[in-house]
Design a binder for these strands. Sequence first.
DNA 1: ACTCAATTCTAACAGTGTTCAATAATTTAA
DNA 2: TTAAATTATTGAACACTGTTAGAATTGAGT
Lengths: 206, 206
Amino acid sequence: MRMRESRKEAVSRHKRELILDAARSVFAEEGLEGASLRAIATRAGYTPAALYFHFDSKEAIYAEVLRQSLASLGEAVGAAVATTRGAKQRLHAAGMGFFRYYAENPRDLDLGFYLFRGGMKPAGLGHDRDHALNAALETALHPIAEAAEALGASRPKANMVVVDCFAHATGLLLLLHTGRIRMFGASAPDMMDAYLREKVAQLTRE
Amino acid sequence: MRMRESRKEAVSRHKRELILDAARSVFAEEGLEGASLRAIATRAGYTPAALYFHFDSKEAIYAEVLRQSLASLGEAVGAAVATTRGAKQRLHAAGMGFFRYYAENPRDLDLGFYLFRGGMKPAGLGHDRDHALNAALETALHPIAEAAEALGASRPKANMVVVDCFAHATGLLLLLHTGRIRMFGASAPDMMDAYLREKVAQLTRE
DNA sequence: ACTCAATTCTAACAGTGTTCAATAATTTAA
DNA sequence: TTAAATTATTGAACACTGTTAGAATTGAGT
């Protein structure tokens, strides 16, 4: 049976959130490597050492900021789908929702890439153990799979559609936020839109 | 008029290459952040400070390693295209060549991602100033554009095909090398293949 | 043998994430 | 109200990082 959060817990949680706010803003300004624990601590009104009472490490702080970011992403995609009727349209809306969120929030994309880069290292963030992070990501992507199944795709096929959309969006965003897409005179949102239309057509064609 | 490289220059170049070899292997083992100048120097038989005679900074060493990696990529793609006849097949071969190179050389992919991540920061690697790096990348991608034009696409359209292929491949590689693709029960090479087939069909259809 | 430049080293600097014992603040018990 | 116990916070240190300045070494040309 769940107890209501005690006063003490609420205070403690509030302090954690204060540190996370500071971390978010420092990450945004200095990037992830550039952000020093000292800077985060100062901005939160703490000594560096004090952060270690509330978090295990700098990486743990990053992980929590990222988790919250993925939750926001999930809400954005969910909202985009909720206001859309029809399986085709919902697939399109979910894909564009994902793309748009990161197109409009480059900071969060920056956070996200670290998750994947971490996954390449033998010991780091972004591995299957990180249940919270993976769960948040899957939740955000779920509407795409759902719409694909509504279009008649099998479960495995629907999963492949998710991977496909995710891959295409991520790659475009990578190019978008480094100015490289202009190098080719193309517009990222237009390309994502064109890709999704083709994908929907391909699905209904089968 | 080009002089032949003097003996002294040859020795100096050889030493640089020695440092780069050490850097490459340390980068591969420890990742890019994990690799310390001390480790690189030691492996090359130097003191950390000595590296600063041959390179401006740690970042400069990384940039050179990356440049060489992009050159290898270009050779790989070029080789794949050279042994293939027909525009459709060459587009497919170029795309798969790009994908395969990074599928088989995760280390180089790791290097490459840093280029893009750096491009997100205000002052870092990966900006338009980096002529050598951008040139190497464009050279590697050129066969794709060439094949697309051979299929009747206009220059701008061909560039969009490049962006599209690049985005899709990059996104898939991101998923592949973090084990996340298995999470959806899909195979990355198969998906890249399917994507390229669809892309070729789409181009010839128009 | 002497010079002069190219190369390498030693020693230090300011910065990083992190730990630990000591301290302050706050809640609980008597 | 006071004493005890928990919870928070700090200051000082540690080992590490990339980088720099200046001294020491090497090696070739005269």
